[in-house]
Nucleic acid binder design. Structure first.
Lengths: 192, 192
DNA sequence: AGGCTAACAGACAGGTCTGTCTATCGCGGT
DNA sequence: ACCGCGATAGACAGACCTGTCTGTTAGCCT
């Protein structure tokens, strides 16, 4: 039980790595389980052992996407300095980075939500992600001294979502730059 | 040839009406041709006569969505008065209207693009739509006297896309209100 | 009345999807 | 040496998908 977890984790990680790459590129519904199996070099039974249903794999994909995107957002904010005000603008560096990345294909959550039944667990997870991110931005706006932190957070996340979502059509980095300039203006206006 | 076009148009329209409703709600890939046939009360041969491939039906769906959304955008702008400056903000009424509409499920183009192969005609059509809309906004910004019409147009369409795209997660009308306030600020800043 | 055309009804082929199942292999611990 | 366990390989069922094909029905024009 306590020995050689690496082998166990290795198979699971290989599956998840492959699923992340394929799901993000083509959407979960556009990738069959057989393709994930073939490209990760894993047996079908192994995949279904770790992820009894395809939805479980999709949820794990969303969790990994959440870690990646939310992590990048917080890292960009941190790199912008100690002032919450600067962090609110600095987090848009994460958008710039995403736009430049090869294979950039928009927002994993919006893309997945678009093809998931409204009542299901997958759709709920996408909503949860956006809620968590907005709550974090709201807290940042509050600490920055915004009169209406919720409004400012909504405005900024709107810009983030717009920039991310457009990426599925056109990954032009000019989008990220426009978003950043808008953000600067909004933050300056809200904080005086 | 010139008689009774209504019967001909009737079947085609019924197909397109049904496809529009189903495709928008579940995504084109989430709806089988058989479902469209069953719900539109049409024979399979009839559907394939009017739309030889499913992609043709998807393209017709996108065209109808373009007419609806772009039309609403122009109508809202027109209703805001004769000043291009007011129109740039007024067009956000279309977003408010969309958020309030029952069955609102985000942006038909982003949702469809998310599940369409990158090189294909369907994806190209979604990009084309966004390009046309942005060109229209750019012209409006130019007439309003913006120093950098392209930048302002990009910032405003970014807000529109963000508001629309978020709709697939959460159709909160507060989003539209936040977008409108952001737009007002951006327009005021750009036009002095 | 007869012919043309659009639409209806539905079987069918060929492929893909998810999820289950059987049988085998390899390796580490006792 | 042997057992247990995770992984491999791949057949299989049942559902669903697109697209084609055959045959029938209803209305309109000459």
């Amino acid at each position: 039980m306590s020995t050689n977890r690496t082998a166990v984790g290795s198979a699971r990680d290989r599956i998840l790595d492959t699923a992340f790459r394929l799901f993000y590129a083509h959407g979960p519904r556009g990738v069959g389980v057989d393709t994930v199996i073939a490209e990760s070099g894993v047996a079908k039974a192994t995949l279904y052992k770790h992820f009894p249903r395809k939805d479980d794999l999709v949820l794990a994909y969303l969790d990994r996407a959440d870690q990646a995107w939310f992590g990048a957002l917080r890292a960009s904010a941190r790199d912008a300095g100690d002032e919450p005000r600067d962090q609110l603008v600095g987090m848009f560096d994460a958008l710039t980075g995403a736009c430049r990345r090869d294979g950039y294909h928009g927002c994993a959550f919006i893309n997945t939500a678009a093809e998931s039944p409204a009542g299901g667990p997958v759709h709920a997870r996408t909503v949860e992600h956006k809620t968590v991110v907005r709550a974090w931005v709201t807290e940042l706006a509050r600490r920055a001294g915004a009169a209406d932190p919720e409004l400012l957070a909504r405005q900024l996340t709107l810009l983030l979502d717009g920039g991310l979502a457009s990426g599925v059509l056109d990954g032009d980095p000019a989008i990220a730059e426009a978003a950043r300039q808008s953000a600067r203006l909004l933050v300056d206006a809200a904080l005086g």
